[in-house]
Design a protein around this nucleic acid. Structure first.
Lengths: 265, 265
DNA sequence: CCTGGTCCCTCCCCCCGTGGGAGAGTCCAG
DNA sequence: CTGGACTCTCCCACGGGGGGAGGGACCAGG
């Protein structure tokens, strides 16, 4: 039984792994040979190691990292399932990210790299009814939705101009805000909302047509345009939502991007 | 104009790249600074390099390799589109592979790692009407389909037993074949098909239930079982398709896997 | 003019998993 | 006993960076 040992080459052929891989897994302690000749360093594997080796080959085929494989080989069925589930979730996220990347590439093919039209404009002062929230970068959609609800509820009794506004800090990861313009000075806003005075002034603006998910592409173009001209962004960036996402096809959603600038020439 | 140069740090902040990245891109010749101070080695970038730098940042965000980005920056619009399209196709393939991996992981969670039941059996001799084809590994499905058509057409006038067979070389990448069993010795097979005698004998068999795409999982389990017992596969492996993929849900498709073995104990 | 803080330089090592190759030693069948 | 196939260790490479050491450069304030 224990005399029936395989050399690394024979074992590699059986398990469809390369000799290099087996040596690497030995180094990591992932699959140490059953016996190592002390004099020559030759590695000898047992038949009962075939199953583990083939499991490694299988999982590596799905790009499961060796560290996860190590946890699985060392654990019982419960651990294995947990690790597999975790790998599945990682895979889901990667797939989602790659689908977004695919869509973005599609748009880049359609309109070229950072070629959107950008204009210099002078924005008027605005009085806004604001609801803001702090959120992680991937929850922006949900946080925005909640703010929209609050702000439209608060504005229901007031006189307000239709386009909805969103404000974002330039470096992200701070506070996002949703606002509507209000005509008259308002005395008692609903709790959670407040009235803010948005100063006007010089700004770079661009019109993004397409899903909100791809807004960042137009932002990138606007910032390229701004920095090329040695203009300096000032404070937070904001967006004007010209269409209603509930009634407009995402591909046709128009959003006006506004990047406020310092006045100096 | 040319006096308005930015230090690497300032340029990095503008373009949302790290200083390390910019130095790396310089080394690769991807984005050499407009001026490098000969005495100090300090890198200075021009405003007109912001666009390229931001394009790099954007594309790296989609995991486009730097070599592809280099081709795009050096090329005109046509080249850019071609490279973008190529990246899209690479992305599609990766997504498809990852979805297959996800499905496979799902199956592994359901039934454990390489835990299928395997049995030792003695297969009878068989006389088969065979159609074979050479094909790349990813076209196996299509090649099999064509063979199935040919073989069923050829067998239409004959007396044949229902289960369809598929044969594959162990190391793949050779010839695949589709066959049906025929009862009587047949004289004149349709061109492109021939009658073969499949020797019987010892074999390891397992029943795979699920889509053909995941057959390799059960194969892996069978080979693990075989090699653990120091049995030696002999010649090509074959499969018996017990259900009709046109009328059965893929999740329920039963396939009997047969791995012929050398007789010795 | 000096000084200190912040910038920037190069160089090296690290990640992950694997392939390639050099140079030397080992195994086994003829 | 010999030759070819096998195996060993050690180093380098990939891609796309991050981290940090050690040392020079820049610039504003005193």
């Amino acid at each position: 039984m224990s005399t029936d040992l395989l050399s690394i080459g024979a074992f590699a052929r059986l398990c469809r792994l390369s000799v290099k891989q087996l040596r690497h897994y030995d180094e990591l302690g992932l699959l140490p040979p059953k016996r190592v000749d002390a004099a020559t360093g030759y590695r000898y594997y047992g038949r009962d190691q075939v199953r583990d080796a083939m499991a490694i080959a299988l999982l590596r085929g799905f790009d499961v990292p060796l560290s996860s494989i190590a946890r699985m080989l060392g654990g019982d069925r419960g651990v294995q399932d947990a690790v597999l589930r975790a790998e599945q979730r990682r895979l889901e996220e990667r797939i989602a990210a790659q689908r977004r990347a695919w869509q973005a590439l599609e748009r880049l093919v359609a309109e070229g790299l950072l070629h959107q039209e950008v204009a210099l404009s002078r924005e008027p002062e605005r009085r806004l009814l604001v609801c803001s929230a702090e959120c992680a970068p991937e929850e922006i959609g949900a946080a925005m939705g909640r703010c929209v609800e609050q702000v439209t509820a608060a504005a229901a009794g007031l006189e307000w101009s239709p386009p909805l506004w969103g404000r974002f800090p330039v470096d992200l990861r701070e506070r996002v805000a949703v606002a509507v313009g209000v005509a008259a000075p308002t005395a008692a806003p609903v709790p959670g909302t407040r009235v803010e005075h948005l100063p006007g002034g010089l700004a770079a603006t661009a019109l993004h047509t397409g899903p909100y998910e791809q807004l960042f592409l137009t932002y990138q173009a606007v910032f390229a345009w701004v920095h090329e001209r040695a203009l300096r962004p000032r404070g937070s960036v904001y967006e004007e939502y010209l269409d209603d996402p509930r009634t407009t096809d995402p591909a046709g959603l128009r959003t006006r991007i506004v990047v406020p600038l310092h006045e100096e020439e």
